[in-house]
Design a protein around this nucleic acid. Structure first.
Length: 419
RNA sequence: GCGGCUGUAGCUCAGUUGGUUAGAGUGCUGGAUUGUGAUUCCAGAUGUCGUGGGUUCAAGUCCCAUCAGCCGCCCCA
């Protein structure tokens, strides 16, 4: 019966309330860390993604919303936002003098995929990217921000899965060793892995096939073939995380699906997401800026699935807290004129007031109020008008009392509400 | 891209081996005298049976196609 485009949904009600709550925390926490927001276009030239995400990745191969515009240029609705942010850094020449540049973003991404629990064709991501700093300290800082953000939302037991995927320089050594390991037991690996050994051997490590996982027992790890600098980097990051009380587990088989990562790679999974267990992922991508035409710049970043985060929070905490405005119900012509004036005065003081403007009988007004979740009805009739009061009905308990106008402003004051 | 399940009132669903006018609960609308909801009582309305074909005297029920949703694979957020 749905008539929205497949995989794209309307956000409203409780789900939207969780989104808003998360977004508010993003601005507050990330802003406090000195990250600034960036909003890049939803549409980029297809080339931007092909060059950054990688031609061999599934995203580019089969998941992009890609089409020709009227000028016959190939454009793509962003499947992720790191590429767009890097493109913006390059365009605005923000990286020319090597100052650190810290940015965060939030917004819809698009991937043409088969739908499933926690997976949509239009989904939202929150991400943070830091440019111009190569140190493990910058990664620790970014991860602290991430964990403070998530813990602030009430997620306590998170497991960070950590690995180093090395550098383009260190990878040949690993690939050679891994190839020898693979060839010695090649018949135990699946068809896909035989393809991967030619295109991207690392990706065999996270093949989901149980047979392949078993065959990987005792495999050479990327970490043991790291160059000295990368090895020191990896060790230092682990020391920092330990000192900062950020729990992590080393996962030598963790490899990310995007081609641009170097050195640090990580993921956080959640058991509350069904098969779509990845809540967030990220890592270092020191080569990407140069690849997109900018100066050789170190970079580190990650992205969280907002839809999935909201889903986890709902599972853990139920409905998002909601404080609906009080409903002001005037009775009669005289009262309804006064109600608008009075509400305006209260709005000016920052109160949250919804006006019943239908001029309907009180019974009907209360029925609607009850249905729409109003908690407090302020009834303004002839009698109240003369006395300068309102009849205040608490819809959850049924109790009713009478407040002066001053009392009302005082009692409702400062309560921030949103739908 | 591949596989499994599902689609009947706003919502949750029932509907026999095909058989006459398609049902329940909830919700909705109106009423139980004036300015009091949610609870109670009375009355009422509700449907392209996802869509399009086919088989049949007869299809919500069987067949095919298609669309959508859920779940899984791949991959990811």
């Amino acid at each position: 019966m749905s008539s929205s485009v497949k995989g794209m949904r309307d956000l409203l009600g409780d789900e939207l309330r969780w989104f808003q709550r998360i977004e508010e925390a993003v601005h507050r926490v990330f802003g406090a860390h000195g990250y600034r927001e960036i909003r890049t276009p939803i549409l980029e030239y297809t080339e931007v993604f092909k060059r950054s995400v990688g031609d061999s990745s599934d995203i580019v191969n089969k998941e992009m919303y890609e089409f020709l515009d009227k000028g016959n240029r190939s454009v793509t609705m962003r499947p992720e936002n790191t590429a767009g942010v890097v493109r913006a850094m390059v365009d605005h020449k923000l990286l020319v003098n090597n100052d650190p540049q810290l940015f965060y973003y939030m917004g819809p991404m698009f991937r043409y995929e088969r739908m499933q629990a926690g997976r949509y064709r239009q989904f939202w991501q929150i991400g943070a990217e830091s440019f111009g700093v190569a140190s493990p300290e910058s990664e620790a800082e970014s991860l602290v921000m991430l964990f403070d953000f998530l813990q602030g939302l009430g997620l306590k037991s998170l497991s960070l899965s950590l690995n180093s995927v090395g550098t383009p320089e260190s990878r040949p050594a690993f690939n050679a060793a891994f190839r020898a390991f693979f060839d010695a037991r090649a018949n135990h690996f699946c068809e896909d892995c035989h393809r991967r050994i030619e295109t991207n051997p690392m990706r065999i490590l996270d093949c989901k096939n149980p047979g392949c996982q078993a065959a990987l027992e005792g495999h050479p790890t990327i970490v043991e073939f790291l160059d000295e600098a990368s090895k020191a980097h990896h060790t230092r990051l682990k020391e920092l995380l330990t000192a900062l009380d950020i729990p992590f587990t080393e996962n030598p088989r963790l490899v990310r699906g995007l081609d641009y990562y170097t050195r640090t790679a990580f993921e956080v999974l959640s058991s509350d997401l069904g098969a779509q267990s990845a809540l967030l992922g990220g890592g270092r991508y020191d080569g990407l800026v140069k690849m997109l035409g900018g100066p050789d710049t170190a970079a580190f970043g990650w992205a969280i699935g907002l839809d999935r985060l909201a889903m986890v929070l709902k599972q853990l905490q139920g409905d998002a807290p909601f404080d609906p405005p009080a409903l002001l119900i005037p009775l009669g012509e005289k009262a309804s004129a006064e109600a608008i004036r009075l509400a305006r005065e209260w709005w000016g003081k920052g109160l949250s007031i919804q006006l019943e403007t239908r001029g309907c009988p009180l019974k009907k007004a209360l029925q609607s109020a009850n249905r729409t979740g109003v908690k407090l009805a302020l009834i303004l009739g002839e009698g109240e008008l003369e006395k300068g009061t309102v009849a205040v009905k608490h819809l959850d308990t049924g109790e009713q009392e009478e407040w002066s106008l001053e009392e009302t402003a005082l009692n409702l004051g400062g309560k921030g509400t949103r739908s």
